[in-house]
Write a protein that binds this DNA or RNA. Sequence first.
RNA 1: CGGGGAGUGGCGCAGUGGUAGCGCACCAGCUUUGGGUGCUGGCGGUCGGGGGUUCGAAUCCCCCCUCCCCGACCA
Length: 587
Amino acid sequence: MRMSECFLRTLRDDPADAEVDSHRLLVRAGYIRRVAAGVYAWLPLGRRVLRKVEQIVREEMDAAGAQELLLPVAQPLELWQRSGRDAAYGPLMFRLEDRKGSGFCLAPTAEEVVTAVVAQEYTSYRDLPVNLYQIHWKYRDELRPRFGLLRCREFLMKDAYSFDTDLEGLRASYRRMYDAYHRVFERCGLTFRPVEAQAGEIGGDVNHEFMAVAAVGEDDFVWCRSCDYAANVEAARRGHAWHHTEVPAAGAPAPAVPGGGAVDAPPMEKVYTPGLPGIAGVAEHLGVGEDAMLKCIAFAVDGELGLALVPGDREVSEHALAAALAPRAVRLFGDDDFARHPSLPKGYIGPHFPGAAVVVADHAVAQPRPWATGANEPDHHVRHAVLGRDFTVDVWTDLVTVRPGDPCPRCGAPLSVDRGIEVGHVFQLGTKYSEALDARFTDEQGEQHPMVMGCYGIGISRVVAAVVEEHHDEHGIVWPPGLAPYDVHLVAVPGRGEQAAAVTAAAEGLYAELRALGVDVLFDDREASPGVKFADADLLGMPVQVVVGAKGVARGVVERKHRATGERDELPLAGAAAALAPGGPRR
RNA sequence: CGGGGAGUGGCGCAGUGGUAGCGCACCAGCUUUGGGUGCUGGCGGUCGGGGGUUCGAAUCCCCCCUCCCCGACCA
């Protein structure tokens, strides 16, 4: 492609609305342009990168035995009503009506459609397993699109769906996808980590997210340096650090008096703590550490009041709380909830609140020690609250959000926390959709069973952003070789001297030779100054730059620069094309 | 939805009551030719929309819309 003809305009200034490097550079370098919030146009160069990622994904999916198909973007809402996800997704879906008033949505994902399609075609165990995938646009009306391509309302996704006869088959299908994902992200040049995750609205049990490690990621994940444990903080649990005491197992009934008679505390005592609803203020006022406070968080569970207890220096994990009380729905109290329950003094709640239907506590609350906590009375706290004597717990679980240094639940070593971009997610779904949408098969005995499903997503457009986050420098993008829109950026610097015509001729000749050898070349044939061309070449980020200039041509050589390392060397003009072709000598 | 910020040419910005400007980009000419050359001339804007105040509004007031950031939420 000749740059003089390429639909491309680079910007010298950073776009004002770009916060993160990938967004800033992809816009500046002319790969994408914003059309609406969270909706982007992919300009020719960007389109080529997208195709490269697509191709890698396609090759690995095909190699893993999946078959490509194409499902509709316009999906009848009726399918979503059958699975119950119409309500679950709610305003996240772009909705529309046809002229007859029938409801449609723009596909946020495709479990329903693909399940309905498979249900129509396959009815026998002999047909299974089958794994189907597509690479297509997805639509989610996010509350807050941001960070350029990282959180879009329209994004390109590879979504695959496996159908097996049983759990064992599902596990095998899942494993094949899991392994294929490793190869995809390795080929994309990403530093990534698979982590255990929450299922969200998709449903199902076992699932892993593939996190591209990046400071701008929106997800925190914990990982263990000693073993292979890694999990999204939402799903992460910590091991038990206080070996000196007996810790109740998850789900076990409340111990009569944990710690036995180890707690030798005076009677519970009320303290006047005016205007101190926060943990930090009270702890200072009472002269105790925040970890000696008992944090009491109010929540609603099926219309009843519940209390969640964690040490004062820890945060309640909403996901852990929900998991502990599932299948009942849990919601933490907001300001309006407190407004409806004036008897509940926000900031001064204690675990002995009489109206609490259920009390859930983290295992750490079983430590044999007296606690300072709310007095269930505005402007008052209590000290010397003792478990079993002054308050009781109904449900024990791991309730705190994990933080760095917490013990690994597998091996006990200190956990680390990093940020990541979720570039892929694999789920073992089970029969949620096959039951809802009647995807059944007949087994050898002639009995009907729902198919056992898995689903597997890769955010193709998000991968592009994640790759730029990892591969750039102060001058611009540094594409990994497999993703660059062009293999070689050929720069002609003819100057105005005697050799100008010879330089142009040499560059044109090299351009033709490279193309004949099947090399994808971006040829800067513009009438621009050398500085402009070099700056653009670095910004655009092709892995190899080849400069044809007057000095070199006089000596019969061209200069090669590796974008990633900045290394430069010379190639004889005569053999340059062959040396730059994929099969040619490397350097 | 809560909090904060911003809407002025394609991009980045200035302009606090007197009839809109700078840099980049774009066009023309000269200049320069191995790291965003310099100069001259030019094209391009109903200042987000509506209403109001005023002799006069980008500027002051009211309403609305959009965008960005933080949070809540989420694959």
